[in-house]
Computed example of a mutant assay.
Amino acid sequence: MATPVGKLGLPPVLRTIADAAGVTAALKLAQARGGTRIYVPRRVAEGHWLAELIGVEAARQVAKMYAGENVLIPLGLTGTVQNARRVARQALDEGASVTQAARVSGLTERTIYNLRSREGGGRQDDQGDLFGE
């Protein structure tokens, strides 16, 4: 017997996606893009990243719900916060963008900005010094 979507404790957006496209599709989407915004096209073709990730039919169901919208995908089941922060810090140290660090760590972009500000002093290494020292 399948687990009812409401019993999983999914955030509303993921619950809507799970109702339309299935729980597996919602969790895959949260794992791959959780914490970031995605644009959902009005029509999903076979080569589109969303179709590749969750399947063409599931992607089309998501498109029916959110066609033409930018949707903030909530975080999925990502593990412990300390581990996620470590993964984010490593990604940033290797030159990843905030969005890329959010995707690989399962944290939100806002959390990555805060993490970078707290731990990194808020200044990127390639940014010049205002006083030229």
Score class of each variant (00 low, 15 high):
Thr36Met: 00
Leu27Ser: 08
Glu133Tyr: 09
Ala101Gln: 00
Ala18Trp: 04
Val104Met: 07
Arg86Val: 14
Ala32Ser: 09
Gly122Asn: 10
Gly121Asp: 10
Arg33Glu: 15
Tyr113Glu: 11
Asp19Thr: 04
Gln82Tyr: 12
Gly76Asp: 04
Ala25Asp: 00
Ile54Met: 14
Gly128Phe: 06
Thr80Phe: 11
Met65Ala: 15
Val62Trp: 01
Val62Ala: 11
Ala91Asn: 04
Leu27Pro: 01
Leu75Asp: 02
Pro4His: 02
Gly6Tyr: 06
Glu119Pro: 02
Ala32Cys: 00
Arg37Leu: 13
Gly106Val: 03
Pro11Phe: 04
Glu109Arg: 07
Ser97Met: 07
Leu130Val: 14
Leu77Gln: 13
Ile54Ser: 03
Gly34Met: 01
Trp49Arg: 04
Val62Pro: 01
Val56Asn: 07
Ala25Ile: 06
Ala20Leu: 12
Asn114Pro: 01
Ala21Phe: 08
Gly55Met: 08
Leu115Pro: 00
Leu72Ser: 09
Val13Phe: 10
Glu94Gln: 14
Arg15Gln: 15
Met65His: 11
Val87Gly: 05
Ile54Trp: 02
Gln82Ser: 15
Ile73Cys: 06
Arg110Asn: 10
Leu115Asn: 03
Glu109Ile: 07
Gly132Tyr: 11
Val13Ala: 12
Gly76Arg: 02
Ala20Met: 09
Ala96Thr: 00
Tyr66His: 12
Leu107Gln: 06
Leu72His: 08
Glu109Trp: 03
Arg118Ala: 13
Arg43Gln: 13
Gly34Ser: 02
Ala88Pro: 06
Gly79Asn: 09
Arg103Trp: 01
Ala91Pro: 00
Leu77Asp: 15
Ala91His: 10
Ala32Asn: 00
Tyr39His: 12
Leu92Phe: 06
Thr80Gln: 14
Arg118Asp: 15
Val23Ser: 05
Asp19Lys: 11
Val23Thr: 15
Ala21Glu: 07
Ala67Arg: 10
Gly55His: 07
Ala59Lys: 02
Phe131Ala: 10
Arg85Met: 13
Ala59Tyr: 04
Val44Phe: 05
Gly79Met: 05
Val87Cys: 05
Glu94Val: 06
Glu119Thr: 13
Tyr66Val: 08
Ile17Asp: 05
Ala25Arg: 00
Gly132Asn: 13
Glu69Ile: 09
Ile112Met: 04
Ile73Ser: 02
Gly6Val: 12
Met65Arg: 13
Glu69Met: 13
Ser105Val: 03
Thr78Arg: 13
Val13Met: 14
Ala88Lys: 01
Lys64Met: 14
Ala26Gly: 08
Lys64Asn: 13
Thr111Asp: 14
Arg37Val: 11
Ala59Met: 03
Ala88Asn: 09
Val23Gly: 01
Trp49Cys: 07
Gly76Ala: 08
Arg43His: 12
Thr111His: 10
Asn70Pro: 07
Gly47His: 08
Trp49Met: 03
